[in-house]
């Protein structure tokens, strides 16, 4: 084999390898996300965030608009502070409500943003004023049982 045949084979090999990398990045990993784009960070405080994790999606009307950047605990108010990184392509009004939701019965938890009607918008560093905490299944069940017991005091012996 002479030099140019080596070059051809190696060139094809490298091109094939880069194609495979592109396939992984585009088709498997979805590089077209907005992680690379500009974004702003807002803060939301919850009484209880349940099992939410860092990097959980932030959705509005079911569409992913950002990710949870960090979760920490405010040492004075004992509230969970979630910092949400929202893509600059989306603006949310000041009275947006942030709710912790679960996709499906056992699915991952995410934050849902419901925009309000005020014409001022949340900017970098703002805090979402209205939040709704995660549903904790155990609390729901115990609440349900207590209510049941309170409703029918005469029937239990």
């Amino acid at each position: 084999m002479n030099r140019s045949q080596f070059d051809l084979a190696v060139g094809a090999f490298v091109a094939l390898g880069i194609l495979a990398l592109l396939f992984l990045a585009m088709k498997v990993g979805n590089l077209t996300g907005f992680d690379t784009g500009t974004a702003y960070v807002i803060e939301a405080r919850f009484d209880n965030i349940g099992g939410m994790k860092v990097r959980a999606p932030v959705k509005s009307a079911g569409v992913v608009v950002g990710r949870v950047e960090s979760i920490s605990l405010d040492g004075e108010t004992y509230e969970a502070v979630a910092r949400l990184r929202i893509s600059s392509a989306f603006r949310f009004s000041k009275d947006t409500i942030a709710t912790i939701l679960t996709s499906g019965l056992l699915g991952e938890q995410y934050i849902g943003l419901e925009p309000g009607g005020v014409s001022e918008y949340l900017v970098q560093g703002d805090r979402v004023m209205k939040t709704q905490s995660a549903m904790v299944l155990e609390k729901l069940i115990s609440q349900f049982l207590f209510n049941k017991a309170a409703e029918t005091p005469g029937q239990t012996k």
Binding site: F13, V14, L16, G17, I18, A20, L21, F23, L24, K27, V28
Partner: peptide, 16 residues
């Protein structure tokens, strides 16, 4: 050093 990463990418792509 050049080959192994390219081959690994090809392996993963072929596996998918």
């Amino acid at each position: 050093v050049f080959s192994v990463p390219l081959l690994a990418a090809l392996f993963s792509a072929a596996g998918v």
